[in-house]
Every structure is written in C-alpha cells, then in structure tokens.
Design a protein around this nucleic acid. Structure first.
Length: 416
RNA sequence: GUGGGUGUAGCUCAGUCGGUAGAGCGCCGGGUUGUGGUCCCGGUUGUCGAGGCUUCAAUCCCCUUCACUCACCCCA
C-alpha cells in the first residue's frame, strides 16, 4: 500500500467541512474589510525566501523544500506567503495605480520540520497583507479583524499578544544592549541560547528553557529602546485597540522568527494546542518591499494557521454536514431508470437526491436512505407506475402521501 | 536533527508468562412475499506495521526499519 508522505495529511469529509466554514467566514470578512484575493504560486525561486525571511533563520537554514529545476535555478516550495505577495506586488508594479493595496491569500505552505500536534510539513495559512499605510490604525485594524474572525468561528481560548521591535534606527541600539547583557549572563544560558546570542540575540528572549528565562529576567526591554517615532506608533496601536475593545497583552518577549519584522508584532495564542501556542501571527515589515527591490512602502500583515484553527474552533461538524433531501427507492428495472431521470433532474435544480443503483430490496433501500440521513424517500414500483402516482415518505414523521408522476420534479420540490 | 510512547479486523481496543487471535461498533443478510432508525438471529473481515535473529514453534523475546504520536527545537 502506498502511504502518504510523512508530515502530510488528507483532509477528509468530517473535517473538511470545518475548513470550508473557516475559509468562507474569512473570505467574507476580508471582502468586507476591502481586501482582494491573490493566488501566488507555491513554487518560488529559493533566493526570494533567503532574502526576505533571513539567511540565519531556522526556516531558511533547515526547513525548506528546495530543489533544482532541471539543473537550473534552485526553487523552493514556499514556507510562508508574505514573500510571494511582496514579490508579486513589486513584479506587477501593483503600487503604481495606488500604493495602498490590501491582499489576502489562502493556501498550503511547506516546512520540513518534525511533525507534531498542530505542526505538519504541509500546512495551510490564511494571509493578509496591507501595503502603503504607515499609520498604527491599520495595525490595530488587522488585529481587530483577527479578533473578529476568531470570535465568529467560536474560538474561545485565544489571547492577543503584542510587542514592538522598533525600526532600523532604534533596533540596533537595543540589540547592542541586549548582546552586552547576554554576554554578562552567558554562563546561565542554554547551549542554543549561547549560539543565538551571537547570531540573533532577539531569539534568546523567546527561549522556553526555565534557566534561560530566569537569566533574562533583568534583560533590557525593547520597549525602553524605541525611538520617539516607534514609541508613539506603538502607543497608537494600543490606543486604537482599546478603542476597538480588543483585549491584548503587551508581551515584550514576543519576538518573531522571521527577520523582516519591524515595529508592531503580534500573535494570537491559545493553550489548547500543546506546545504549539500560536494560531496566528504577524506584524509590520516596513523595510521588506524596498529590500526586495520595490519602492519604499511600509507594510503590515499576518498569517493564520488553518490546521491549528480548525482544531480549536468551537464550530461543530454536525452543523455543517449535508444530508440528502430525498432518496428515491425504486423497485424493478423500469422504475429504476425513471428514478434515475428524476434524481438527475433534481440534482440539476439544486436538490440533493440519491438512489440505489444495485436493484436491492425495498427494505435495504430504506436502510440506506436512513443511513444517508435522507429527509424524504420517494417509493416507486410497478404499482405506482401503473397508478400514476408515487409514495413520498417523511422519514421523521413517517407520514406518507401520494404525489402524481406528472410534473413530479416540481411537486417534490414544493413538498421539501 | 534529538528523546519518550504506540503500531492486532473498516473503527475503538482486548489477548497469548512463545503453540498463527477475539470483543464492541460497523458492514451484509434475515425476522413471510413492497417500507428505515430500536430489538432478535445469522454472516463477514486480519500477511497481529515491515524485514531479520533466537526457537521444534514468534503476533508475543531480541535487533533493524518504517509509520503514528507527544515533547525538545521552531513556528502558523
């Protein structure tokens, strides 16, 4: 038996209905907020991710599915969507008509990590990106959008964490102060963190090892190093969130794993997913568009993990499963071929109609109708054909009525 | 990449201190010839994850491997 690839999965009926509901709710919300859908490809030049996510990140260092396309350029199955959306924004000069652009995209991402609860090698994200707006209002609106989506999807255990990472003027100063601090505390840090403190000191703040957490208690806080512009920007985000009545936590240890973030960063965290607590995350990346060769346009965005969201949503599958409206139980070949015409006609008109194709007994056809959850059963046999009317049985009430074969499709639809 | 747990029928699981396996659910049929869900009766299914070692004999011991799962790591 050929099995699927490790870390990949089939999303089958019973689960897929929840996904459809998530996507449907997200789409309509995004449209209301003025976002346009974009569908970039899932394969990009490897270089795109190295330059956007950062060479020193785990994603680029060891998690990408990269291969050579017929011995030519290295290509990569996208590990995230922002880079592609930015690439597209630049390539098609989408900023030319109007620098302010809002996009959303839904699709699979690929990262070769060890699979775990809420972590797969092919996973799905809903992304939103806004270009050309500097104002903290838009940061707050994105978080508001997320909070709204989660509440519409009946997510209960979700908290908004926010932080600011500063910009290219203030971040270096903070980095320096942090490096100095880490140097003085290096005996207490775990091996990963000693390595990180040189290459990417911000990451140390994110470490979960208890001793490291202890060691960084007195570490300098990013927020104390923000320049006045970044400081007031962050204040603006907070004030707007309060106005929008979105509860949030200021989490100065919230550092994100992608290098392109500046200023506002945020995550929606839950306690329901074991070790994987982030169901959505994002932030501002004011330098990325320019860094990838585009105009100097600010940008903010976020990504939602659909796999994770589907696991913690309060939606119940029973509310989304579909059952046949009607099952046609036909007895004998003649009835069967007529029944076949009927169900096709009904299907065409948007009625969920089913029948049995094996010429089984009425009893077993009734059983099947019941198993499928059909609301009504139409019984047609020799006798009914002769008399010109068939039996329509309500499976809930057991009530049976006769309806004439003449104009049956319309009559059935009326009764449903 | 590292560590722990698990791997027996379609599903959930039991079992053999080594003698090739069951239960519930499901599925199929029947309970008088054309009516479902409850009930009763009957039937159905397995290379006991894969390969190897020890043994007269392994699903059960040992080794390897794969998969699933959880955690580290990282992130959505």
């Amino acid at each position: 038996m050929i099995q699927l690839v490790r870390g990949f999965k089939d999303i089958l009926s019973g689960e897929v209905e929840i996904w459809q509901q998530i996507e449907k709710t997200a789409r309509s919300l995004f449209e209301d907020f003025g976002f346009k859908e974009m569908r970039p490809p899932i394969l990009e030049r490897a270089e795109l991710f190295a330059r956007s996510i950062g060479e020193d990140t785990d994603i680029v260092e060891k998690e990408m599915y990269t291969f050579y396309d017929k011995k030519k350029d290295p290509v990569t199955l996208r590990p995230e969507a922002t880079a592609s959306v930015v690439r597209s924004y630049i390539q098609h000069k989408l900023y030319a008509k109007d620098a302010i652009r809002k996009f959303y995209t839904i699709g699979p991402m690929f990262r070769r990590e060890r699979p775990q609860k809420g972590r797969y090698r092919q996973f799905y994200q809903i992304n939103a990106e806004v270009f050309g707006i500097d104002s903290p209002l838009i940061d707050a609106q994105l978080i508001f959008l997320l909070a709204t989506l989660f509440s519409r999807l009946s997510v209960t255990d979700a908290k908004v964490h926010i932080n600011s990472l500063g910009c290219s003027t203030c971040r270096p100063k903070f980095k320096e102060a942090l490096s100095d601090f880490l140097l003085s505390a290096k005996e207490k840090l775990c091996s990963d963190c000693t390595r990180r403190s040189k290459r990417n000191p911000l990451r140390v703040l994110d470490c979960k090892v208890p001793l490291c957490r202890e060691a960084i208690v007195g570490a300098p806080s990013v927020l104390d190093f923000l320049c006045s512009e970044c400081g007031s920007h962050f204040e603006g985000v907070k004030k707007s969130l309060e106005k929008l009545k979105v509860p949030f936590l200021i989490d100065k240890r919230l550092v994100r794993g992608l290098d392109y973030y500046t200023r506002t960063t945020f995550e929606i965290q839950t306690g329901l997913l074991g070790a994987q607590n982030a169901i959505a995350g994002g932030g501002r990346y004011d330098n990325l568009v320019k860094a990838l060769g585009g105009p100097d346009q600010p940008a903010v965005g976020f990504a939602i993990g659909i796999d994770r969201l589907a696991e913690i949503t309060g939606l119940e599958i029973k509310d989304f499963l579909q059952y046949p409206d009607i099952f046609v139980a036909a007895l004998g070949e003649k009835s069967q071929s007529i029944a076949f015409e009927w169900i096709c006609a009904l299907n065409l008109e948007g009625t969920r109609a089913e029948m049995d194709f094996a010429g089984k007994s009425l009893k077993s056809q009734m059983k099947r109708a019941n198993k499928l959850g059909a609301r009504y059963v139409l019984i047609v046999g020799e006798k009914e054909l002769e008399e010109g009317s068939v039996i329509m049985r309500n499976m809930m009430t057991k009530e049976q009525i006769l309806i004439p074969i003449d104009g049956i499709i319309e009559k059935v639809k009326e009764k449903l």
